[in-house]
C-alpha cells in the first residue's frame, strides 16, 4: 500500500488528465502496427498477479501476457497499476491492455472492449471457521446468472443466502463484480467497500463476516500459511453481470489490438500453453 496523502484514485485522475492532453498524436501513429504493447496488471491479486519483494511482477496474468506477446511477436512492457484507477488510465492512454483477472462483465463492457475470456471459475464466498456462516456448505457447482436453466437454483440459493446473511457484513473490494453482485442480488446485506484486498484483514479481525471474490483467487488464498482459519462457503456464481470469466481489456476503438489478442489467446488455448500456465499457478485448469 503506497503511503501518501494523495489517494491512488486521485493519482489516476491526474494521470488521466495529463494523458488526455499529451497522448493522442502518439496513439494515432501507433494505430496499425501494435509491435509494441504496454500492459497493465494490478500486482496485488495472487496468484493471478503479484509483486515480488524485489518489485518485479509475476503471476498467471504476467506469464500469460509474456506468452501472448511471444505469439504476437510484439515487444511488451508490463506495469503495475492500482485497481481502482486501472480502467480510467487505460482509456487515458497510459497503457494499451489490462491483463489483471478482470471479469468481462456488461458494466465494464460499456467503457472498454474485452477479448475472449482466458480464465473462468466464477465467484464465491469466504468466511472464518468461527463464524456461523461457516455452517453454510460450499457447493462446487456454478450457478449461471441469467441462464434460464439455472433460474430455480439461483432463486433457492439467494433465498438461503439472504437468511444466512441477516445481520452479517460483507467486505468487498470496490469496483469489482462482487460489489455489483451484492447491489443487484443481495441488496439488503450490509457491505463495506475497500480499495484493495484489505477486506481480508478485516475478515481476520472480525470486522466483516465474509468476503466475496473469484474462486481462483480465494482457493489460492486459503492455502496460504496463517490462513488456516479461513473457509470457502456457499454457492459459486458466474455469467450475467459476473461476466464469462477473466478477459483482457483494451480501449473500445482498438479493434485491431483486440483481434490480435483474441487470435493469440485461441492459439495458447489450443496448444495447451494456457493449461500449462494455469497448472503452474492454480494447480488446476482454469481454461474456459
Amino acid at each position: 500500500m503506497k503511503v501518501t496523502r494523495l489517494t491512488q484514485g486521485t493519482a489516476a485522475a491526474l494521470i488521466a488528465l495529463c494523458a488526455h492532453t499529451f497522448l493522442p498524436a502518439q496513439l494515432q501513429a501507433q494505430e496499425k502496427s501494435w509491435d509494441t504493447i504496454r500492459i497493465a496488471t494490478e500486482g496485488a491479486f495472487p496468484p493471478f498477479n503479484l509483486t515480488r519483494q524485489d518489485g518485479t511482477l509475476d503471476g498467471y496474468d504476467v506469464d500469460l501476457s509474456n506468452a501472448l506477446c511471444e505469439r504476437m511477436k510484439a515487444k511488451c512492457t508490463i506495469i503495475a497499476q492500482p485497481w481502482d484507477g486501472i480502467i480510467p488510465a487505460l482509456n487515458a492512454g497510459k497503457y494499451d491492455a489490462i491483463v489483471a483477472a478482470m471479469s468481462a462483465n456488461p458494466e465494464r463492457a460499456k467503457v472498454v472492449s474485452f477479448t475472449i475470456p482466458y480464465a473462468a471459475g466464477g465467484v464465491t464466498f469466504l468466511t472464518s471457521k468461527d463464524n456461523s456462516l461457516a455452517d453454510v456448505p460450499y457447493v462446487d457447482t456454478l450457478i449461471r446468472l441469467q441462464d434460464p436453466k439455472d433460474a430455480d437454483k439461483l432463486k433457492a440459493a439467494l433465498a438461503e443466502l439472504n437468511t444466512a446473511f441477516a445481520g452479517k457484513v460483507a467486505g468487498l473490494q470496490a469496483s469489482t463484480i462482487a460489489t455489483e453482485f451484492f447491489h443487484k442480488y443481495l441488496p439488503d446485506v450490509k457491505i463495506r467497500e475497500y480499495k484493495g484486498n484489505e477486506a481480508e484483514l478485516d475478515l481476520a479481525a472480525g470486522r466483516v463476516d465474509m468476503i466475496m471474490a473469484s474462486l481462483m483467487y480465494l482457493s489460492d488464498l486459503v492455502k496460504q500459511d496463517g490462513r488456516e482459519n479461513l473457509v470457502l462457503f456457499g454457492p459459486r456464481f458466474g455469467g450475467g453481470l459476473l461476466g464469462q470469466g477473466a478477459a483482457i481489456a483494451v480501449r473500445q476503438d482498438d479493434d485491431a489490438l483486440r483481434e490480435k489478442l483474441d487470435a493469440a489467446l485461441e492459439e495458447l488455448k489450443a496448444d495447451g500453453t494456457m493449461k500449462e500456465i494455469s497448472m503452474k499457478w492454480f494447480g488446476f485448469d482454469v481454461t474456459p
Binding site: 496523502r5 489517494t7 484514485g9 486521485t10 489516476a12 485522475a13 488521466a16 488528465l17 481502482d84 484507477g85 480502467i87 480510467p88 482509456n91 458494466e107 465494464r108 467503457v111 467486505g171 470496490a174 469496483s175 460489489t179 463495506r192 467497500e193 475497500y194 480499495k195
Partner: peptide, 29 residues
C-alpha cells in the same frame, strides 16, 4: 478524506464509489 480508505462513506468515500461504477474520475473529483 482518508477516512474513506477504511470504508467510511464521507464525500471522498462516495466519490470513490461513483468512480467505481462509472469509471469517470475527472468529473467526480
Amino acid at each position: 478524506s482518508l477516512a474513506s480508505l477504511v470504508t467510511l462513506a464521507d464525500v471522498t468515500g462516495i466519490a470513490a464509489r461513483i468512480i467505481a461504477e462509472t469509471y469517470r474520475p475527472v468529473e467526480v473529483f
